[in-house]
Structures are given as structure tokens and as C-alpha cells.
Write a protein that binds this DNA or RNA. Structure first.
Lengths: 163, 163
DNA sequence: GTTAGTGAGTGTATTTTTAGAACTGAAGTC
DNA sequence: GACTTCAGTTCTAAAAATACACTCACTAAC
């Protein structure tokens, strides 16, 4: 399988990874959620090479995750803002951060804490079922083919013919 | 910034990405959650090159996300199983899949659906606050330095010294 | 007791990415 | 007119990922 044909896979994970599966994209997105918006700010914070940054920003714009909007006219300068689609990536970022918090924090503890404005408490993200509101774990779920399924679905059944 | 020093960053996202930030690792993990466990099964399903697969599995074992356990003795053969730490990556996988479901599904619809065994319904994952149980979005949270914070925290304040 | 077959990997050559610096270009500032 | 800022682009060299064929250990068959 080639990287470029990942998005043709009938797998939502593969399609998502086709957009954000490289080293830098998620780091750029992290900064987007921290309200970094300008080219040079990304570059300075991340220490990323300019050509790579330009390429990644362009791809994120093409994917509809960021929007390039002018913030001044005379020399036209653009900044990059999360679109509603981009904002939907928040659970991904938070889940990733939470895993790092749980398992990868050094002896000093977590680098950052998250406070929920609505209730005022420090919190951890919890994944719950939209139907019943209970937390869901890896063994609480069954995967079923959906309308967009193709033969090579993530369900391991392709060896059925030789069993 | 070099890829290799990502895990030294005082950022949980960067540390997590240092383990799983490449093209293949998350795809391998997806298959792990679908109970794929053997070298050749991964290889056949993913179409990944054997050297890359060997490398990634080794790294995941080193990171404590997978465990290599023998499943037969005579020629000692190993399979790769998720550790408890690995199981904690479930929210990451599910969030990524859900983003793909929402925004990247083709006109035919979602490739797979998820059913919650506990309540029996098809569902979407929702991220809620562990303290109050309410859903959290990108603008409902403030980030505060934690005990493991260093000067280069994700909060944009590093230019203070040179301004 | 050679020969073929399987599962799990290595080694090497090739392609891709990436890093890093310098350059462009438009506009404002001194 | 020289200098600076921002947002890139264009180079080259170096690092990394990748594909492909190959090895190794063992089993089963002949």
C-alpha cells in the first residue's frame, strides 16, 4: 500500500491519516488550538523548516481543516484559522495529549493541566457513548460494516474463503 | 527541532507523537484493536513492507504498547498483543475514526459502524469532562502549566525574554 | 536426509523526506 | 535610498523510509 492511496481505503482511520499522518501536521494543529495563526509564529514555535511548514499549511487548507484569511490589506498577509471541520479534530488532539499525560509524563508530572471552564475543575477527557452516555472501552464495541463498506473492510474476514 | 528530540519536549502531544507519529503505527494499532496479532497477518492486511513492520512492532514493544508473547513452543513463534497501556490508546483511534466518519466518508456513507455492546445502540464517541460529565469543546478549556512544565510550554510566552 | 514450506525477520539499494540556508517580493520605516 | 518584516520559494545535501530479495530456524514431506 502506498501512502498516497491511503485515502482510497474504505477505512476512516486511513483516510484521516492520509491528511494528518505525518510528523508535523498534528503539532501544527496543536498550535492552531492554542491560537497560533501566522506563518512565522508557527515556524518559530515549532522549529520546523519553512518549506515543510508551507507545504503542510497548504495541505491543511486544501483538506478544509484550515482557512487562509487575510488579516491586513496593504501588503496582503494571511493567517491560518481552524475551520469548523478543523475544530472537530479537537477530540483527536485531546486524546493524544491525554495518553501522553497518563503514560509519558516524566517524574515531574504533567506538563500542562486542562481546566473545564463550564465546571471550573481540572479534568481528564472521557470517551462516552452518544446513545447511553456510559464510557466506552475497546472491548465494549462491535464493528459492523456500514453503507460505505467495501470488501476490504477492517473486519478480518478476507481469509474466509480458505478456512 | 529533530524528530528524535520530540519526546524531550514538555508537551504530551509531542511525546505521544514520538511513539506513534508515523504513517504506519496507527494503522498497525487499528488492526491490533481488531485482534490481529501475527506478523504475517499484519503484513497481508496492511500491505506494509516486512522491514517496516518489524521495525514498528519492535518500537511498539519497546514503548510498552504491545507485548510479544509466544503462542507456540516448538519453533518459538510470537504474537503481538496490546498491553494495558496500549489499550489506553483506544480513545485516540476512535477519535481519528470518528473524524473520518464525519468528514471523509464518501457518498456511500461510513465504511463501518460502531455498536455499543452495553446499550446495544449504534453510537458516536463523545468526549466529556471527567469532573462534570458535560461534553467539552475546543473553547471550553483553559490550559494551565502543570508540575512537569518547562519554559517552552505550549502556551505562547517564550518571546518574553527577547522582546 | 535432502527438499520444500512457513513464520519472522535482515541487509542493501533506491526513492522520498527533511533540514538548513539563502533568495524573492511587496510594503512599510528610518 | 537602505533596512526591516512577513510570507513564502528555491536550491542542495543529508537523513529517513521504503521495496525487494535474501536469510534463518524449524517442520513436514518425500
Amino acid at each position: 500500500m502506498q501512502w498516497s492511496q491511503l485515502d482510497a481505503e474504505a477505512c476512516s482511520l486511513a483516510r484521516t491519516l492520509a491528511i494528518m499522518g505525518d510528523r508535523w501536521t498534528l503539532l501544527i494543529l496543536r498550535d492552531c488550538f492554542l491560537r497560533i495563526r501566522r506563518f512565522d509564529d508557527f515556524q518559530a514555535r515549532l522549529g520546523i523548516g519553512r518549506p515543510i511548514l508551507a507545504d503542510r499549511l497548504q495541505k491543511l487548507v486544501a483538506a478544509g481543516i484550515l482557512a487562509k484569511v487575510p488579516y491586513q490589506e496593504r501588503p496582503v498577509r494571511y493567517e491560518y484559522r481552524l475551520t469548523p471541520k478543523g475544530l472537530d479534530l479537537y477530540p483527536v488532539i485531546i486524546s493524544l495529549v491525554h495518553f501522553g499525560d497518563q503514560h509519558l509524563a516524566g517524574p515531574e508530572g504533567r506538563p500542562v493541566l486542562h481546566r473545564h471552564l463550564a465546571c471550573g475543575n481540572l479534568f481528564d477527557p472521557v470517551l462516552v457513548c452518544s446513545a447511553c452516555g456510559e464510557p466506552v472501552g475497546p472491548r465494549d464495541i462491535v464493528v459492523e460494516p456500514g453503507p460505505g463498506a467495501r470488501k476490504r473492510s477492517p473486519v478480518p474476514s478476507e481469509d474466509a474463503s480458505e478456512s
